[in-house]
């Protein structure tokens, strides 16, 4: 009996780990996917904003002495950077085709990478979890760090909030209409370009939020953006570019495959996600839940 109980708690632990990773991926991919669905824009630099969020969060936490202020202000700063990008580059690249978008945002990755190295140096920086969340919680026969539970809760809250905004409010209806058919939405009197800007800023803020939230778990490094970019893009493509449900489904799939793959067959875990992506692209090129009918 003892053995079985240990087994069960081990799997509960892995499920929570997978869920926590999935929530982090969700925070990143939801912004990316809505920006793509609405603006038809592929922003590879989205992950750089995540990295900036982490570094800004660390500096803000040192400045204000509180993790919570960092969690609040850093996403707003990242949103400001995103707004700056929107006016200088993104707006004029919207119709430029995927290759140019990929190239320019690939260039931005390089620029942000070196800006962070100049500003914060090459050493990995850590961020302490807030005192209230630094312990572990005991439940279902396991001990689990309360900060990781907080991330699961944060992701869940954002998920619920996003669903509520998109499904139940007028602005959500406007966003959905614009994803479905931009020209028709504009013809119906929706100020599409203002909506674009708003959604882009919110996506950037979520990337910054994910960065701050991730900093206490995975310390901030200059490669963290490039490392998380690929899984995030995979989530977005598997789920279906532009779809909220797709981002949720994709994050959960990749989160669970990654964590359980690492436990069950360590040598193939990374391969599994790529194989899944290839399979989805071949059989359902527009993702599991396509945004446009």
């Amino acid at each position: 009996m003892q053995n079985v109980a240990m087994d069960v708690s081990f799997w509960i632990l892995q499920c929570l780990n997978a869920l926590q990773y999935a929530m982090l991926l969700f925070l990143l991919s939801v912004g990316l996917t809505v920006i793509f669905g609405l603006l038809n824009f592929v922003n590879l630099a989205h992950a750089s904003l995540y990295m900036l969020g982490a570094y800004l969060g660390i500096s803000l936490a040192a400045l204000t002495g509180s993790f919570w202020w960092a969690l609040l202000i850093a996403p707003l700063l990242v949103m400001g950077i995103g707004a700056g990008l929107y006016f200088t580059l993104i707006a004029r690249l919207r119709t430029a085709g995927p290759m140019n978008q990929v190239l320019v945002t690939f260039g931005l990755i390089f620029v942000f990478l070196d800006l962070v190295r100049i500003g914060w140096g090459d050493i990995a920086l850590g961020l302490a979890a807030p005192p209230a969340l630094s312990g572990t919680l005991h439940f279902l026969g396991i001990n689990y760090p309360s900060y990781r539970l907080f991330i699961i809760g944060l992701g869940g809250t954002v998920m619920a909030g996003m669903w509520f905004i998109l499904a139940r409010t007028q602005i959500g209806a406007m966003i959905r209409a614009s994803v479905e058919n931009t020209d028709m939405a504009a013809a119906l009197g929706i100020d599409v370009s203002r909506l674009f800007f708003l959604v882009f800023c919110c996506g950037c803020a979520l990337a910054g939020l994910a960065g701050v939230a991730a900093a206490p778990i995975l310390s901030a490094t200059t490669t963290m953006g490039i490392t998380i970019l690929i899984p995030t893009m995979i989530v977005v493509v598997i789920g279906g570019l532009g779809s909220l449900e797709g981002a949720i489904l994709g994050s959960l799939i990749i989160g669970f495959i990654d964590v359980f793959g690492a436990v069950l067959m360590p040598s193939f875990s990374a391969l599994l996600t790529y194989a899944l992506l290839a399979a989805v692209l071949v059989w359902r090129p527009h993702g599991l839940i396509a945004a446009r009918g």
Binding site: G107, F110, L113
Partner: peptide, 11 residues
Amino acid sequence: YWHIFVGLVLI
């Protein structure tokens, strides 16, 4: 910091 120049040239 040569990445930043490469990035700017690309953009």
